[in-house]
Design a binder for these strands. Structure first.
Lengths: 135, 135
DNA sequence: GTTCCTGCAAAAGCTTTGCAGAAGA
DNA sequence: TCTTCTGCAAAGCTTTTGCAGGAAC
């Protein structure tokens, strides 16, 4: 995938930090937090600061190439996959998985008068691996 | 509604603060934040502290009579309605509305192996009132 | 008298802001 | 040169923790 091209196509100048953070989001589908992104990338870019991670993620969100995943109260996670999909968080291992779904199939009652612009679906429970390991 | 009875039924001793906060959650369906709860109740209970609001909400959640609504990254809201329902937040006025729905109608792909325990659905857009006022 | 509850003050996190130096065009 | 980007340090918020006094039983 052409990360640099995707950044420039969204009016984001492709600095090293921005490329690496964007790459990281794509290659780490675990929906990382700022802390995770920072601590994983600081090895590769020793001068990296959290401020830059915050700045960069904000820039990505403002330009529509990333979004936040707030499946838990006390942590904000980030996602660079912009297709409509649900998120599943495992209570045991803490991993967050993408769940494919067709959001248009959801049927609401009494919502006719509201104009829905975005839909977020968050599931919690036990993932495959944890269910198997437990037994 | 018998708030005191509901608290004691869930092993929560009905102190004045707890009764008032629980009542407030039921009568204020706008899904208040800690700040809102505190500032609205401090008039009635002048000695109230935010610590107590935090303690009490945590107690309610642990005992299953309230839940958090994390429709936005930067604010945690609280809800005492424990039926399954979706939440809709209006971008314009900021109000959060309950949307009735039957969660069992949602169809996911490839989720068979996961054990889903809770489902949260958050919608954003423009509410009825704001759509009318704009025009 | 013992236990539990409340709320002040302080601490702990997380995120944002201001700004100066560095990098890039 | 001029603009933009980075990252340190400090500030700002929200939430948690420790603890002492108070209420309830």
């Amino acid at each position: 995938m052409d990360f640099v091209g995707h950044l420039t196509a969204h009016n984001i100048k492709p600095s090293l930090q921005r490329i690496k953070i964007y790459e990281y989001l794509h290659e780490n589908r675990a929906h990382p937090t700022v802390e995770t992104i920072y601590s994983d990338l600081v090895d590769e870019i020793p001068t990296l600061s959290k401020t830059t991670v915050y700045n960069t993620l904000k820039l990505f969100i403002d330009n529509g190439i990333a979004s936040t995943v707030t499946i838990e109260d006390n942590e904000v996670r980030y996602d660079a996959i912009m297709d409509e999909h649900a998120h599943f968080k495992c209570d045991s291992c803490g991993n967050v998985y993408d769940i494919e779904m067709d959001i248009s199939t959801i049927k609401f009652k009494k919502i006719n008068s509201f104009k829905v612009e975005t839909t977020n679906i968050y599931l919690k429970g036990k993932c495959n691996k944890c269910l198997t390991n437990k037994n």
